[in-house]
Design a protein around this nucleic acid. Sequence first.
DNA 1: TTACGATGTGAAGTGGGCTTTAGATCAAAC
DNA 2: GTTTGATCTAAAGCCCACTTCACATCGTAA
Lengths: 154, 154
Amino acid sequence: MKALRTRGLGIGQIAARTGLAVSAIRYYESEGLVTPDRSPGGTRQFARSDIRRLSFVMIAQGLGFSIAEIRTALASLPDKRTPTKSDWARLSEDFRQVLDARIAQMQALRSRLDGCIGCGCLSLDTCALYNSEDRAAQRGAGPRYLMGESPGVD
Amino acid sequence: MKALRTRGLGIGQIAARTGLAVSAIRYYESEGLVTPDRSPGGTRQFARSDIRRLSFVMIAQGLGFSIAEIRTALASLPDKRTPTKSDWARLSEDFRQVLDARIAQMQALRSRLDGCIGCGCLSLDTCALYNSEDRAAQRGAGPRYLMGESPGVD
DNA sequence: TTACGATGTGAAGTGGGCTTTAGATCAAAC
DNA sequence: GTTTGATCTAAAGCCCACTTCACATCGTAA
C-alpha cells in the first residue's frame, strides 16, 4: 500500500459540503464537537468523516438539542478512529428513541389541545406535555409548571 | 346586575397560577403577548383569561415557537373582549395543524435515520427534514442545507 | 518571489428570552 | 399614619449559539 496522501479537508471545503458557516465550524470545534488535526502551518485538517459528524450536529440542532447534549451524544463515537457503520448505527438508535419520545409527546399534546384548549378550559395541570422531562419545555430558566384556572367560566 | 367588582389579578397572583416568573410576565407584556389594565396607582390588573393566554404562551414556547410567532397566533384572539370558547377553538385548530406538520416531519426523520445514519451513509440532501420550512431548522443564522459525502467509504 | 485568497486568533457584537439590580411607589394591614 | 411587602420602571446583565471584526499567517498559483 502507498502512504496515505489524503491531507484532510480544509475548513472551507467542510463548510461547502455541510452548508455550515466557517465560523460555525470553528465554534463547534471550540465546543468540542469536532477535533480536526492541524497542518504544520496551523490550518485545520478535517477527516471526511467529520462531514458526517457535523451533519449529525445539524440534525440534532434542528431538533432542538443543545450543544451540550449533542456533545454527549457524540461522545459515543470514537475519538481517534474513524467511526464505523455500527458506531453510527448505535448513535442513530439512541437518537431514534429520543425522537420516538418526542413524537409521542407531541401527539399527546395534540389530543390534549382538542380536549383542553379546544374546549376552552385549558386546565393543563394534568397535561402530558408538562409532566414530561423534555428539554423543549425547559428552555432557559422558564416555566416549571402550568396551572389552569378552574374550568367553566371565562 | 351588580357592578363588576373584580379588580383583576395582580402580577404575583398570575405568576403563582401560571408558574411564570413575575419578570417573565412583564417581559411578555413588553412583547405584546398580554395587555393588562392598570390600577389608578399603576399596578397591572390581569383578567382571569390572561392565565389562559399565558398558558398558551408557555405551551407554544415549549414547542419551540418564538415570541413573534406566538404573538401572531394570539392575534386571532380578541383584544378587548374576553376570548370565547370558539376563539380558543379556532386558535387550537390552527395550532393542531402546525403540530401535525411537525409530527409528520419527525416521523419522516425517524425513518430517515434508519435509512441514512443507520446505514452509515448520512447523505441527507434528500432528507425530508431539511427540505421543510420548519422553524426548528432555522434557528439563528444557522445551516441552510445539508450535503452528505458519497455513500460507501469512510 | 510575489500575490492574494483562505485560514488563523482573540475579542467584541448580535438576537432571543429572560433575570437582576436599584431605587421609587403602591396597597393593604395595623 | 406607619409599616411592610408587592409592584413599578429603566437599565444592565446573562446564557446560548453564533457572526463580525481586525489583524496576522498560510499556502498555492503565477
